[in-house]
Design a protein around this nucleic acid. Structure first.
Lengths: 247, 247
DNA sequence: AAATAATGTGTGTAATTTACACATTCTAAA
DNA sequence: TTTAGAATGTGTAAATTACACACATTATTT
């Protein structure tokens, strides 16, 4: 046995020891992973970072981090979001926990997936790390993500598709003022299907939380559409009436 | 530097490396808590155990346990269910993770809540621990649960109310063969509202996964109703057609 | 000035949900 | 044995909601 081999063996044993110790205390690492959606150029996008972990070197992964001992689960997700995008006060909601034993190559890590919707045009948004990039959701079909992030992403995307039909989340992806066409493009991108323009319009107006700003689109090569904004207060009132099943 | 020191340094370095990826200082306990529903005497019930923890001595709490290091999250929930009720092959689904820093008095414990639906009349069911009892869901309004289990229960109950209207889960709470009246009583108990008998019947028949067993109720003090069973195969086929958003 | 392209609006039809009543079958009591 | 009671089993009309669809308007560009 060469010294090198011996050392490797010791290292191996130490790692084993660490695992045993962790076992004895029943403690494990817990992380949050954020599926951060954005909407740009009529395309639904998701923010990914290139993994620096050996096993998944170069593969794209969700933005995540370990949860700190004195940090709420939600707070950890907010922290990741803030650190990575500079944004705060944005839509963020827990989707599901993923806890397979072997989901992480470096050891036992249970992760909690969050879904976030941000407005790409918001001036707050600044992505400092140049390993982080926007990817169109469509293009993910052809990409292999690191860890089990493909499954996590799929779960969150389907969750969003369902959720967006029951609650008005979409607005979080748009600028404060938006045209109905933009809103419809967004919904078509999320649901991945064409919608009837007239029925779409009717539906949203009947929900009665779109407010006409009096302004119109500018610099569009056609008749400009009216700009609306989402009235959160009205919505909150309605929500109570709806007896919303909401967790 | 002696070989031993060198080795130690390498071990140290390896651990550091590992820590950077999975910081051992960031580890914490993870538990599962099961909200186990049953249906008996036309009442929706939930299984609770009297806490033996000092702070919550005597208070009722959900059935839960720490997740073991070599155990999947789902497996841990199944284990709790099996150990406490003797039942296997039952409906169990993750609902949400709860991770407030101070939610557990004994230290940091992140818990993942599961919802389970079991048939109280199943012969498998055996509750050995005499600290475990069924409680009607209605009566929980007047009880103070230990930990944050009130919140967890509320979340799971609302989740169930919503879920049961989108997917046929209810059958898991009933015996294999059941009358439509029993089914309706169940739904009325879960949703906590009266339903129209004719429309209820129409709706379920139109979904086309109720099978007439040819048998009838026995020992009822009135005209006996037909007994039906739920056809899982038919349902599975339908589910695909529905393009079910299901995680 | 005309062509183009998108906005803005309304109506009829189909599908679904809701409300509602009466005859039937069994049990239990007279 | 008869009768009263109570729950099962079934159909239809009204109301609401979802869907399909067409044309006039307003701005831009040629």
């Amino acid at each position: 046995m060469t010294p090198k081999m011996k050392m490797a063996a010791t290292v191996e044993k130490t790692l084993k020891g660490l695992q045993t110790e962790v076992q004895s205390t029943n403690k494990m690492a817990i992380s949050v992973d954020c599926v951060i959606f954005g909407f740009d150029e009529n395309t639904l996008k998701v923010l990914l970072i290139r993994s620096d972990l050996k096993k998944y070197k170069g593969k794209w992964t969700l933005l995540g981090d370990l949860v700190k001992p004195d940090e709420d689960l939600d707070a950890a997700a907010y922290r990741v979001l803030k650190q990575r995008t500079g944004m705060k006060d944005v839509y963020l909601e827990q989707v599901k926990a993923f806890g397979e034993v072997d989901r992480h190559p470096a050891g036992r890590v249970v992760t909690v997936a969050y879904c976030s919707l941000i407005n790409i045009q918001n001036h707050q948004l600044q992505i400092l790390d140049n390993e982080i990039h926007w990817h169109s959701v469509d293009s993910l079909k052809d990409k292999e993500l690191g860890f089990d992030h493909e499954r996590i992403f799929d779960t969150c995307y389907r969750w969003l598709q369902k959720r967006v039909q029951e609650h008005p989340l979409g607005f979080n992806l748009l600028p404060k003022k938006f045209s109905l066409r933009e809103l419809q493009n967004l919904y078509e991108a999320i649901l991945s299907k064409k919608l009837d323009r007239r029925n779409f319009r009717k539906k949203f107006f009947s929900m009665d939380f779109l407010v006409d700003t009096g302004e119109e689109e500018r610099d569009v090569p056609h008749r400009p559409g009216k700009l609306y904004k989402f009235d959160f207060e009205k919505y909150e009132k309605k929500k109570k009436v709806w007896a919303g099943i909401d967790f």
